[in-house]
Design a protein around this nucleic acid. Structure first.
Lengths: 192, 192
DNA sequence: GTCCGGGTAGATCAATCGTTCTACTTCTGA
DNA sequence: TCAGAAGTAGAACGATTGATCTACCCGGAC
């Protein structure tokens, strides 16, 4: 048995930090994290070396989970390549509707982590590349004439939906993004 | 003469805060602001009552300037309603290309100002509504069948371009957004 | 001349930040 | 049984935060 026992301090701390850094931003105090996780101060520094190490690990874990969520949203949409790609936007719509939605964690992280050498930046960058490649793969299966460019456009629609989901959620930005995504997917081969 | 003399401490402080809160985020220290503006500590509290008051005034000033920039980008694009609206995305492309571009200041502000009662939120909200109405006005002049919905879609493209301009500027997100905007503008009246 | 509003310079305060440390407890394996 | 790793609880440190306060200076209006 691998994870049958009660989660240890490392796990509790990661989970609490993942929650609090999203709801309150990267500027949450160490004390708040420790209290939320019911963990001793010492455990944080032994496991992660400091707040920055914890934040980096939180981003690593979050990107893995979110990448899995993309795969799941695609897989849950069936076999038709077009429907699968549109499923991504259904997943985003569901995310925006959640009461604790606060926008794209990774854009917020890049804006909040002032130090350009913070390890968090490399993690968010790698995550975006993986999502881009995931979209490209599906666009290739769809037989899209410009998979790379189209993936970039879909990413732009995703970024826009997540941002608008924060500032004007009542306008259902994910639905708008989905409509525009259909236009991206239906692009015909260049006439020339 | 209205503003011919050297700018006073209030003006210097506003200008410095506008620059630093954008480049370093809302978490810049008061000391850094005072140093950058060459202003005494006391002046800040006499003119703005505190850091929050200064931030609110900075947002007010920035929104006014950016709203004027939208008008200018539209006006510079001539008389054709379609070209005028696409001019917005040319302006965004130019903004992203500037070396100090750091994304949408107002999204960053809403994410950074944890307190939901901070006066800054009301200012960013009002700004977005003014931009939305500006777009609606142009869409109406264009004779668009669904001006309100289309304005929302254009705003989504703007948000997406500004976000992607931070995380992957090399992909020229403003150009992508402009292409998608053309599709929004060319929507035909519903067949039903 | 002098008086005073507005400005600068800087000490100071309480609070909070991330971090380090000591002291005690708890659980586990040999 | 007991040694030791791992965890908890919490004091304490230095740095920094936003904010308040005192002391000084300067330029016009009267």
């Amino acid at each position: 048995m691998t994870t049958r026992t009660a989660p240890g301090p490392r796990e509790r701390l990661l989970e609490a930090a993942q929650r609090l850094t999203y709801s309150q931003g990267m500027a949450v105090g160490v004390d708040a994290l420790l209290k939320e996780a019911n963990v001793a101060r010492r455990s944080l520094y032994e496991h992660f070396g400091g707040k920055d190490g914890l934040i980096a690990e939180v981003l690593r874990r979050s990107t893995a989970e979110d990448e899995a969520a993309y795969h799941q949203a695609i897989e849950a949409a069936g076999d038709d390549p077009r429907t699968r790609l549109l499923g991504v936007f259904d997943g985003i719509a569901a995310a925006i509707d959640r009461p604790d939605f606060r926008g794209c964690r990774y854009l917020a992280a890049d804006l909040a982590l002032t130090d350009p050498d913070h390890p968090g930046h490399a993690i968010t960058r790698a995550y975006r590349m993986r999502v881009q490649q995931l979209l490209e793969h599906e666009l290739l299966a769809l037989g899209h004439p410009r998979p790379v460019a189209a993936a970039g456009e879909l990413l732009l629609l995703i970024d826009g939906a997540l941002a608008a989901g924060v500032t004007r959620p009542a306008t259902h930005p994910a639905a708008s993004a989905r409509r525009l995504a259909e236009h991206v997917l239906d692009a015909r081969p260049a006439a020339a």
